[in-house]
Design a protein around this nucleic acid. Structure first.
Length: 1028
RNA sequence: GGGCGAUUGGCUCAGUUGGUUAGAGCGCCGUGUUCACACCGCGGAGGUCACUGGUUCGAAUCCAGUAUCGCCCACCA
């Protein structure tokens, strides 16, 4: 048997992938004779390449998918990518700006979209390539893209349906306006950044103040330029009561406060009392003026604005009055709705002041702010200026500040839809693991906030709405009638609605179901214009589980695989994505999209930060694969998948010259080049851009946390080599379990247990546990004991054949169990194993599948489990360990004679194991049994909790001092434990209240310890006597 | 402000329903290569389980509080 002495993954993996592909191992067709199992991939964004977070996500999916496939399910893993609307457009636009200094408007819609398609093609290829190299067993023939025709028709059908049900509507909304990208971004795409700013106090003059009335109202703002859009100043309708309420709350807090908090609360209470005394009369006065319809003069633009009474004005804060800028502040917008105030938008889409701003028109915000402040100062209307830390919202996409901005948007009404998705989780039609994530899901949905779905972008599903503005309801109805005529031939293709606008005009909205150029042309011929916006990217993602299966067509795949079985994803998109898939699935199909959701941890770097390209700590799985191999990547990731919400993964640069790993630090990960501390040569990092930097070879970003997984792959490979090198003269033969010796029975028993544990663990998404169980079994049991014991047996002609049968079976089962997490190395070994022993198995050999990938998942064979055999074997292992410890402490090189005093029962066990003491512990058993006597000069070692004394003949090796100190240390340890136990057992409460079996166990252990101590003490005395 | 999570040897993490002496990998120390594997074998050192209280015969584990760190959500004239 020729098997290379190293597993070369770079050579083997591509061949294995091709073989699987050629055999169609991962392809799934509808098969009603088998039960379906389906997972849809969380489609990675085509924004960029995958990092380790995706690596983990897809490894876990593949593990589940491979297990299910081996278990005989008709298993489909649906692959694909997401167009990621705003993210992708932003990346391409940024590059356009950097490389060609052009904006999207220079290019135009079509050309920009064409560019993004190019980008998509490039990254989709890269992403799918990454997944393939990781060994993901997706059904690649079914690969989808959220913007492809199949998904598009699902989007259109859904939009049409919701529009028809009036669940999609047009409304005004304060959006997060990104002035760079000139689009609204969702709340989720906004991050806050704290920066130094000022808090300006400004006075507005009261018009015609009566005697005794204030001449000014004072307001304060961090954004003074927004005053250009002010349409009111608000004061609380009942400031006295409001203050009282705040005070009550503070007192309640004070009652529960700890010492630290008390002074602060007291200060606040004092402030409140001051306000009552000094400000309340003025606020009451202003409130009365507001109710009286009095007005202020808005300076600079000289507009009369009313004083209004509104609860939004908090008398406990600032001056108690607040400026109202409905078009640029969410709360003010609410106030304006309540008080029926005009809303004045002062910004152009590019973030400069528009015509409403009078002489400030055309100024960008920072300039306008400066000017407004200066002019107010000149008018003497500027009060105090405080320095303040201000949290400014920024666009996650363009990294520029967000401006709140009132715009027309399309919304999905979420009331019913959210409720349906909540019910699905509450009544466990969808189960979420770990369970703690249910709460976040339910809380978010329970707010039932309407979903703004339009985006002012060019990359995405274009909103299928055509509209026209009409001066009257009459005209709108007439146009609607014409549209009706168009729909005569296509009843289910076209629908419309009329809406009234603020200015009294009417809008006709027409929604077309499918893409249909002639119909569109007819609609446009009637003077309707297509909405320029596209849909939020999550709109198409929400349909993913059914759109990929062909919906709205009722395909056989849809009928068979939907609802899918499970969804494996990370926690940041539980609301954005998971919740929306549930409600869309329920709306479109009437059935949940998946039965279970598993949320896996996020991978953080060594500094505890999430990985991302922009931080420079993102790890490309390919870099890990190049260095450690795909199996090590996967196994290493799988053992990280615990119940935790985060796992930490310190990352290193790999020196391209000497392969040394260099820890990343906050500083080093932002540099373009670094010098290797090992070989002193320079390498470039992912930040390298200049030619000078790029002249140095690039360092991969890796993590040494994959080392032990790589070593494990090597260990498995070598265990397999050993088996294969000992397969000559192998004959498949039936094996009678009962006739097997202890070590074989032990292996079979352990296999039964391990199989059960691994199967259960994966079933419950405990991937780390499955990995650990397999690692320990393979390394510490199969390799360290079974193979070591097999060595002498294989050279014994009488035992060789059985040994081969059991050993091959063990390897076979281990390969199957490990295959889902380490597909390549197991498949490679499987191939060799099939050459050496195509028929194998216990008790009856059978011929095996060509691929381990398509072989059957092992059953846990109950009757192979034998508790007493496992316990006996543990005793044997303890004895081996005891001899090894003595050898190590005495530095013994040669084979040593050993005598073992044990019970008759243990003798029965240990006697057949005699031959293996030589290879496992370098020991030759000369006496064994109750009658065994210590040597003249020996090293005793009692074994905890087992009634066995081991004596090693030290005549030729003994180092008295070493032995004496070892024994004394042992005695001290025993004393400590004995005292602990004695104390415990003398505690009457323990004896009377603890369960009897626990007490009995403690007594037993104490007896044991006492016996050991006695023995050790005797040994010490004897040794001392010898020395003297 | 609300919620979630974490804190266990130098590092990264396990630790099922409370019950002998808290485990692993890496690192460290000692030792060993003809006979599967130095990406290895064998042995060892190293932890008052963040802190304070409580429940209990018994707490890394359950409860309350404190501290530190991280994440999510809301809000900030």
């Amino acid at each position: 048997m020729t098997i290379p002495n190293r597993f070369d993954h770079s050579e083997a993996a591509p061949q294995i992938s091709r073989a699987w592909e050629d055999a169609g191992c991962a392809h799934a067709e509808v098969d009603h004779d088998r039960e379906p199992f389906c997972i849809v991939i969380p489609p990675p964004n085509v924004t960029g390449a995958l990092h380790l977070g995706h690596g983990l996500n897809n490894t876990l999916q593949d593990i589940v998918v491979r297990v299910k496939r081996m278990q005989g399910f008709q298993t489909l893993w649906m692959p694909g990518t997401d167009h990621a609307g705003i993210a992708t457009q932003a990346v391409v636009e940024r590059r356009l700006k950097e490389q060609e200094n052009k904006t999207r408007h220079d290019l135009g819609r079509e050309a920009l979209v064409a560019r993004i398609w190019q980008w998509k093609a490039q990254y989709e290829t890269r992403i799918l390539g990454q997944l393939k190299r990781m060994g993901c067993s997706c059904d690649w023939r079914r690969t989808r893209f959220t913007l492809d025709d199949v998904c598009a028709s699902a989007v259109r059908a859904t939009f049409f349906d919701l529009f028809g049900k009036s669940l999609i509507y047009r409304g005004k909304r304060l959006v997060n306006w990104d002035t760079f990208l000139q689009t609204a971004v969702s709340d989720d795409e906004v991050f806050n950044e704290t920066s130094k700013g000022s808090f300006w106090h400004i006075r507005y003059a009261v018009i015609d103040p009566k005697p005794g009335e204030p001449k000014h109202v004072e307001i304060a703002t961090t954004r003074p330029e927004t005053m250009l859009g002010d349409t009111a100043v608000a004061v609380h309708p009942d400031p006295e009561q409001a203050l009282e309420k705040v005070e009550q709350e503070l007192r309640a807090k004070l009652a529960e406060a700890n010492e630290k908090e008390i002074p602060e609360i007291k200060t606040q209470l004092q402030d409140l009392a001051d306000r009552r005394a000094n400000m309340l009369p003025k606020l009451l006065q202003l409130r009365d003026m507001a109710l009286d319809g009095r007005k202020c003069m808005l300076p600079l633009v000289d507009r009369e604005i009313p004083l209004v009474a509104d609860i939004w004005a908090k008398p406990a804060l600032g001056s108690g009055c607040v400026k109202i800028t409905p078009a640029h502040d969410a709360n003010d917008y609410e106030v304006a709705l309540r008080a029926d105030l005009p809303m004045i938008n002062i910004l152009k889409p590019d973030g400069t002041i528009n015509g409403e701003g009078g002489k400030y028109e055309g100024l960008a915000i920072p300039k306008a702010r400066k000017q407004v402040v200066a002019d107010l100062d000149a008018l003497g209307l500027l009060g105090e200026i405080e320095d303040r830390d201000i949290e400014l919202p920024h666009s996650d996409r363009s990294k520029t500040p967000i401006e709140p901005y009132l715009a027309d948007q399309w919304f999905v009404a979420m009331d019913q839809l959210s409720q349906s998705a909540m019910d699905a989780v509450t009544d466990e039609r969808v189960k979420i693991f770990p369970e703690r994530y249910r709460k976040g899901y339910l809380d978010w949905l329970s707010e039932k906030r309407d979903w703004p779905v339009s985006r002012q972008l060019w990359w995405g599903h274009r909103i299928p709405i055509w509209s026209a503005n009409l001066p009257s309801q009459q005209k709108a109805a007439e146009l609607a009638a014409q549209v009706e005529k168009l729909s005569a031939g296509s009843q289910d293709q076209i629908t419309h609605r009329v809406g009234e606008n603020e200015d009294g005009s009417y809008s006709l909205f027409v929604c077309l179901r499918d893409e249909n150029e002639s119909l569109e042309a007819s609609v446009e011929a009637l003077g309707l214009e297509r909405d320029p916006d596209v849909l939020d990217t999550w709109f198409s993602s929400a349909l993913w589980p059914h759109s990929t299966l062909g919906w709205p067509t009722r395909t056989p795949e849809l009928e068979y695989f939907y609802p899918t079985s499970t969804l494996i994803t990370s926690r940041d998109i539980i609301t954005l994505w998971v919740a929306r898939m549930v409600l869309m699935g329920l709306n479109n199909i009437g059935e949940v999209p998946f039965r279970e959701v598993f949320i896996h941890p996020k991978i953080l770097d060594g500094l505890g930060e999430t990985m991302s390209k922009s931080k420079g700590n993102g790890v490309d799985p390919i870099d890990i694969i190049d260095r450690f191999g795909p199996d090590a990547l996967r196994f290493g990731l799988a053992r990280l998948a615990t119940d935790m919400q985060d796992v930490r993964m310190p990352v290193q640069y790999e020196c391209p010259h000497c392969q040394k790993l260099i820890d990343q630090t906050k500083k080093s990960r932002s540099l373009a080049t670094l010098d290797c501390p090992g070989c002193k040569k320079t390498f470039s990092t992912q930040w390298a851009e200049s030619d000078a930097d790029l002249a140095h070879p690039r360092a991969a970003v890796v993590s040494e946390r994959f080392e032990s997984a790589r070593n494990f792959v090597n260990k498995l490979w070598n265990a397999a080599r050993f088996v294969l090198m000992n397969m000559d003269r192998y004959q498949p033969q039936p094996v009678a379990i009962e006739s097997l010796p202890l070590e074989d029975r032990w292996l079979l028993s352990r296999l039964s247990t391990v199989t059960q544990q691994v199967t259960d663990a994966i079933e419950h998404y405990h991937f780390a546990e499955a990995a650990r169980v397999l690692y320990d079994f393979a390394w510490d049991e199969f390799c360290s004991f079974y193979i070591e014991i097999a060595k002498p047996r294989l050279s014994d002609d009488g035992l060789r054949a059985t040994t081969q049968s059991v050993m091959v079976h063990g390897l076979d089962q281990l390969l199957r169990l490990l295959h889902p997490s380490m597909p390549f190395v197991t498949e490679s070994i499987w191939g060799f194993l099939n050459e050496a022993a195509s028929e194998r198995g216990i008790p009856e050999p059978v011929s095996t599948a060509e691929f381990v990938m398509t072989s059957a998942w092992p059953d846990s064979i109950r009757h192979h489990y034998d508790e007493s055999i496992e316990r006996q074997f543990t005793e044997f292992q303890e004895v081996i360990g005891a001899i090894r410890r003595i050898r190590a402490s005495q530095q013994i090189q040669e084979v040593v004679p050993v005598s073992i005093r044990c019970s008759a029962a243990s003798e029965k066990l240990l006697d057949p194991m005699r031959p293996y003491f030589a290879s496992l512990a370098g020991a030759d058993i000369v006496q064994l049994g109750p009658e065994a006597r210590p040597f003249e000069m020996d090293a005793p070692l009692a074994i905890p909790s087992i009634d066995i004394d081991v004596h090693v003949n030290l005549e030729e090796f003994i180092d008295f001092d070493a032995e004496l100190s070892r024994l004394e240390k042992l005695r001290d340890q025993l004393d400590k434990q004995i005292n602990g136990k004695k104390q415990k057992l003398s505690n009457e409460n323990f004896v009377s209240r603890a369960p009897q079996n626990v007490v009995a166990k403690e007594r037993e252990t104490l007896d044991d310890l006492l016996r050991q101590r006695e023995s050790v003490e005797g040994d010490i005395q004897r040794l001392k006597a010898k020395v003297e």
